[in-house]
Simulated scan of single mutants.
Amino acid sequence: MKLHLWLLLFFCVPAKIFAQTSPCCHSDAIKEFSMLAEREDFKMAHENPLPYKYEGMDGTTITFPTPDGKMGYGFLLKAKEPSDKYLFVYQEWWGVNDYIKKQSEKLYNDLNGTVNVLAVDMYDQKVAANREDAAKYMKDASLDRLESIMQGAIKYAGPDAEIASIGWCFGGGLALQSALLEGEHNIGVVMYYGMPEKDVNKLKTLTAPVLGIFGTKDKGINTELVDEFEKNMKEAGKTLMVKRYNADHGFANPSNPDYNVEATEDAYKHAIAFLRKQFE
């Protein structure tokens, strides 16, 4: 398959927000997913990314202060007209590589350039070219730092921001955690095979619906975890739409040996329709 087609199909605030009493990222969800990096079968399910250099439109690398006194980074595609609408894009375990930049551009175009699309760099400019480095970066990611980066991105978006989030793999779970931090500013979440939040009390704070996309062959984010997520969201009184595909973890990643074109196309159709509706 030609590279450009693979890329086309690819796919992993106000002060009151920062004053939450229970930091969202300090759940077991992100830690539990990070520990998958120690499993050999999980690592081997991720082929090293194919070489690709992003040469798309005028996305720019930005910086923003984070509450821990450091700087955060992101890749931003600005809306054609001034807008408070933001889509936060959360990376797979590789980092913000050129595939993520290309996917961010696709989302930007399919939202007609009306939304600011920000790929939030959760690895502080580290990008893995192989699964060994990706496993290390994901496992070593500090929960405090991850939360601080998300908080910095939320503040960057501004006090009037409407924010949706989308992510794959490691980023799938981060997209949900980001929504919890965003509070009333969140308008929707798309999570591809990410670790669900299991704390029902935290799920009760969600202010917008969630679209969860999962593979039934996934041994990490398995069927039992997805079933539990559906149960917990129902108990929390929140809206969760689940799409399940006869596919493995990372099925929407073209560099994955179990890349599934049909499932990727269908999943993206649902994802972009969901985002368009939330940004109306």
Rank of each mutant, 00 (worst) to 15 (best):
K243A: 13
V190R: 10
M195P: 00
K136D: 13
F33G: 02
Y137A: 04
Y259D: 01
H270K: 15
Y52S: 05
A134N: 08
Q177K: 09
V96P: 00
K202H: 14
A153R: 03
E32F: 03
K136Q: 14
A271C: 11
P23A: 12
T61Q: 04
Y137R: 07
I163V: 14
P254K: 04
G171E: 01
A263M: 05
N116E: 11
E182P: 04
E265M: 13
E55W: 07
S34N: 12
A135K: 03
G194S: 07
L76N: 04
G183M: 00
N130H: 03
I30P: 02
D144E: 15
N186E: 00
G72V: 06
E184Q: 10
L8W: 15
A271N: 05
G152R: 03
V210Q: 09
M241G: 04
D110F: 09
L206Y: 06
N48V: 01
L174A: 14
F274P: 04
S178P: 04
A29E: 07
E132Q: 14
I187D: 04
E182I: 10
G158A: 13
V190S: 05
A236R: 02
L111F: 07
L206V: 04
L203H: 04
S34G: 08
V189F: 11
A175V: 06
Y54H: 10
M233N: 05
A15K: 14
V189C: 09
H46A: 05
Y192G: 05
A153I: 09
W168P: 00
V200S: 01
F10Y: 14
